[in-house]
């Protein structure tokens, strides 16, 4: 078991490294580099026109004249020490900006994940045990629509009806009076009041997908002989369901946690933009629109890194849930 955890951990480190390479490539991708942007910025806002020699000087100072792989290792070295570079758009260290935003992203993603599971499992079980009933059809239709509606459209529609019926827009995560306040019980309560809506909107698509997977798996399991045997020996229907088929059918779900987590992070990004939540979403959009690649690349790296971490945890969870997985033999 320990070996498996260690091996998965090594694999996760490899993925994290790949994420860093990917982010570095992303930062380098747009035409021009940090100095080009800086020079354009100075010309535009401070009316300073630099001579070509000075520009070269700047390039050398930032180490941008060296080959890419050297730059990558330099960047990597700073990364390990917690220096993510400076945001041009905000004129502040990237790390500081991230510290403000990332915790909220994690809160929303984890809450959405919890919502998805809390909704999908009971509904999926109901849908499979009542196959072709009215409830099953309703769930199926809602599931299809839930997967087809882009999350941002859902957020827009929710905003529209919120405005129509209650006269206010359900945007933001905190009431105005709490935004600048330090953390207190009142602020926490306020946050909890604002949280459900973005969480539900973020979770809908994932829930719809998960219900369909669970329903299909459970339907397969319900036909198995062991269910008949259990029923024949007089087990009550509820216990039978929870003890055998559901346990088996939940496994594929656990193994898809990685993808659904990626989906939720993806969805929460755009929903945060629409509902104007203080997460990394609006920051990323701003960074991308302003071609502030240091910031954009860092955000993407952090989001991907967190997702990889979440996937790792879920893999270990899977081993705990499913004793059939023989982790020793996978050498």
């Amino acid at each position: 078991m320990l070996m498996y955890v260690v091996r998965r951990f090594a694999y996760m480190l490899l993925l994290l490294w790949l994420v860093s390479v990917g982010s570095f490539v992303l930062i380098q991708l747009p035409p021009g580099d940090y100095v080009t942007v800086l020079v354009a910025d100075m010309e535009m806002f401070q009316n300073i026109v630099l001579k070509p020699e000075d520009v070269e000087q700047l390039r050398r100072a930032y180490g941008l004249d060296r080959p890419l792989y050297v730059q990558y290792f330099a960047w990597m070295g700073r990364l390990v020490r917690g220096d993510l570079g400076n945001s041009i758009a905000y004129q502040r260290p990237v790390l500081e900006l991230l510290k403000e935003r990332v915790p909220m992203t994690v809160v929303i993603s984890v809450a959405a994940m919890a919502f998805v599971w809390a909704m999908a499992i009971p509904i999926g079980i109901y849908s499979a045990t009542h196959q072709y009933s009215l409830g099953d059809y309703v769930v199926t239709v809602i599931g299809f629509v839930g997967m087809a509606v882009p999350p941002f459209l859902l957020a827009l529609v929710v905003m529209y009806f919120g405005f129509r019926w209650f006269g206010f827009a359900p945007a933001g995560l905190l009431s105005a009076e709490y935004i600048a306040e330090p953390w207190s019980v009142g602020k926490l309560v306020d946050l909890l009041k604002h949280l459900p809506l973005p969480v539900i909107v973020t979770g809908i698509a994932g829930t719809a997908g998960l219900i369909r997977v669970l329903r299909a798996c459970l339907l397969d399991e319900l036909e198995q002989q062991y269910v008949v045997t259990a029923r024949a020996k007089g087990l009550s229907e509820g216990r039978l369901l929870m003890k055998y088929p559901v346990r088996v059918a939940v496994n594929p779900l656990v193994s898809t946690i990685g993808w659904s987590l990626a989906g939720i992070v993806s969805g929460s990004t755009i929903i945060s933009i629409v509902l104007n939540l203080p997460t990394t979403g609006p920051l990323l959009l701003d960074a991308v629109l302003k071609q502030d690649m240091e910031l954009a690349g860092s955000i993407i790296m952090v989001l991907s890194g967190l997702t990889v971490l979440g996937t790792y945890l879920s893999d270990i969870l899977l081993v705990l849930v499913d004793p059939r997985i023989r982790y020793e033999s996978q050498t």
């Binding site: 991708l29 747009p30 993808w259 989906g263 993806s266 969805g267 990004t269 629109l289 991907s304 996937t311």
Partner: peptide, 18 residues
């Protein structure tokens, strides 16, 4: 596996900046 566990939308957003 790597591509599948990366949140797509942020990745697309980053790429479209290019």
């Amino acid at each position: 596996e790597f591509l599948m566990c990366i949140p797509t939308l942020p990745l697309w957003m980053g790429l479209s900046a290019a």
